[in-house]
Write a protein that binds this DNA or RNA. Structure first.
Lengths: 245, 245
DNA sequence: GTCTATAATACGATAGAC
DNA sequence: GTCTATCGTATTATAGAC
């Protein structure tokens, strides 16, 4: 059993929870999307994300990340204390960045089919950047690095919050309003998306097949909206009765 | 680059697809669920599964698996050639074992709510064994170990096949029959289940919330079954129209 | 802040005794 | 078939020069 227990460093690293340990000089106010002309700290965060996507959590090490970032390996420990410290920070960094990028788009979605189409579009567009794949890898890694658990949960929550708003808006005009739980469904949607992303890595054709089928399911729920008031009422009561049983 | 390509041992291993390389003596006919009184090969397979669950793919090594199995580390390479060879075999082993265990139960499911309830029950019962968590970890690892991709896809397919049969049976009596695609939905269900399992590792309360919401959704689809023939017909046509658009 | 150098450990894999 | 012993490499993390 590995006895060498350590967290962060031997000590002397107990102040900043996770933010910049010593950004004393400047470097703040710089959250651009450039790649090589930003501070070392951000290079490492970006390097961690790309390494997670391209190599997976199993091959993500201080050295592989530093190589991807083009900086020295020791800087990982200077800036983040440990490898999982870096990964936790990178998780938050990536999630905030992506959600901000899609926030406007998300808030303009008005139908269930629109939400699914957004998922498909984002999925394709971000494939090479691996936005969702990062969350999947970190969730997998959270099993052995307890620190990653809260970090990935927080990262997922950013997405969940947005999806929940979309669902609330979208379901409001269907017979589901009142019986469906947007908060719970948003979690299910986010988790399922992660699972589909992982699945695609092993079986791309199967994943595409799954997305097609989900599209059909969304079409059904959309079609519910066109039911006459009598049928809607009957359906709604039936749902409630089924749930109560 | 590891060039030592082989399977099982140096050679002479082209007959049994995946079974024991040299069970020449006896040891066959023993596929019990005991833990310590089975061949080394099976000890390693079980050790790999528990290690994947408890430590995650990132910390799963020949040494950690051997320790969990209570055997010598070198035996990993003797029996499986490499670590990923062992993991690929363990994936198949675990999936076959679990699906066989639940096959009868799966085949007795007749409603959508029943399928979801089964998922919940299996999820809770197998939590400590981590049946699904293994697939999640291997899918995550497949990113960097190409050999794991086909192996995990095959493992998932065992589940997908069963789920597809259930869905075909269950959806047959709903207005969805004909428009819904059981094969695609089965893939979506399996992938989503994996995602939910990962999510639960990071946020158990959120995952429970998600499952509750899915139960409500299943109730809706079940309620559809109670619609009168006129409404069903209208709904079905509307779904097809929506899909065609 | 960044680098080099290095300590201590863990890893995959092999050779060879039994 | 299993074990010990080992090689070469990769890993986390620290110390100290600059």
């Amino acid at each position: 059993m590995s006895e060498g227990r350590r967290e962060g460093a031997s000590e002397g690293m107990t102040e900043g929870t996770n933010a910049a340990p010593k950004p004393a000089t400047r470097t703040a106010a710089n959250a651009s999307t450039a790649e090589n002309s930003c501070g070392t700290r951000e290079k490492l965060l970006r390097g961690a994300l790309t390494t997670l996507v391209e190599q997976g959590i199993a091959k993500t090490s201080a050295r592989s990340v530093a190589a991807a970032a083009g900086v020295n390996q020791a800087l990982v420990f200077y800036h983040f204390g440990s490898v999982d410290g870096l990964l936790a920070a990178a998780c938050r960094y990536g999630a905030e960045q992506r959600v901000a990028r899609y926030r406007d788009e998300l808030r303009s979605i008005t139908t269930l089919a629109g939400l699914l189409e957004f998922g498909r579009r984002m999925h394709a567009r971000e494939r090479e950047e691996g936005t969702v794949a990062v969350l999947a890898q970190l969730l997998a890694g959270a099993q052995s690095q307890p620190r990653l658990g809260p970090a990935t949960a927080a990262g997922l929550d950013l997405w969940i919050t947005e999806i929940e708003q979309v669902l609330t808006r979208v379901l409001d005009v269907t017979p589901l309003a009142g019986v469906a739980d947007p908060a719970g469904l948003a979690r299910a949607v986010a988790a399922s998306f992660v699972g589909l992303e992982l699945y695609e890595g092993a079986d791309p054709a199967g994943a595409a097949h799954a997305l097609d089928a989900l599209e059909q399911l969304a079409a059904l729920l959309t079609a519910l909206d066109t039911l006459g008031p009598v049928a809607r009422r009957a359906l709604r009561m039936q749902v409630q009765r089924t749930l109560r049983r």
